[in-house]
Design a protein around this nucleic acid. Structure first.
Length: 163
DNA sequence: GCCAACGTTGGC
DNA sequence: GCCAACGTTGGC
């Protein structure tokens, strides 16, 4: 079972936002990078788990876990002129961007900070998130990396992570 | 706010 | 197909 990491700027969409939505579900939309799009569309499977990561903020961190609860479908924000993610080159019949629905699974009481991850970099093999200059917003996580990061989050979790 | 790193664009 | 210019990401 593959695992993933999804980046979001908390000023735009945070795990607290997700927590307040009905069923704690939301569309993971606005992905506008082809490599991230391909991962989202082609590599993920329904039911996969992903870390929710806060980027571009005072304390970049893994803040929880979500489950992928839909197949990929055309990202409606790409064809919505009112959306900040509107892409004027797209039409509804020719929309290259996709999103998937996600559901909150665990909201860490204490986030696993990027600085914590760097301190344990040796245990995390070649974690893409920690590579210099990585800008990917949808990142694969190996089972070993997943398990390691989960141990950092233990004792700080509300909710249950089920596999 | 700075700046390194990267992805995308577009002229040739 | 090359590559310079530009825009964006994201940590600090």
């Amino acid at each position: 079972m593959p695992y993933w990491l999804l980046k979001s700027e908390p000023s735009v969409f945070s795990i607290e936002h997700l927590n307040k939505l009905p069923n704690q579900m939301a569309a993971w939309d606005g992905v506008r990078n082809y490599q991230a799009r391909n991962t989202l569309r082609d590599d993920m499977n329904l039911g996969d788990l992903a870390f929710f990561y806060h980027s571009s903020c005072p304390q970049p961190a893994v803040v929880g876990v979500v489950r992928i609860v839909s197949e990929a479908y055309p990202d409606p924000t790409a064809t919505n002129p009112k959306s900040p993610y509107f892409d004027e080159r797209c039409t509804k019949l020719n929309n290259p961007w996709v999103c998937r629905d996600v559901q909150l699974v665990a909201h860490y009481h204490k986030p696993v900070l990027l600085s914590d991850l760097r301190q344990h970099q040796a245990q995390l093999d070649d974690f893409i998130l920690l590579r210099k200059g990585t800008r990917l917003s949808v990142i694969p996580v190996s089972p070993k990396q997943w398990a390691t990061i989960c141990t950092f989050a233990e004792d700080h979790t509300h909710g249950t992570v089920t596999k």
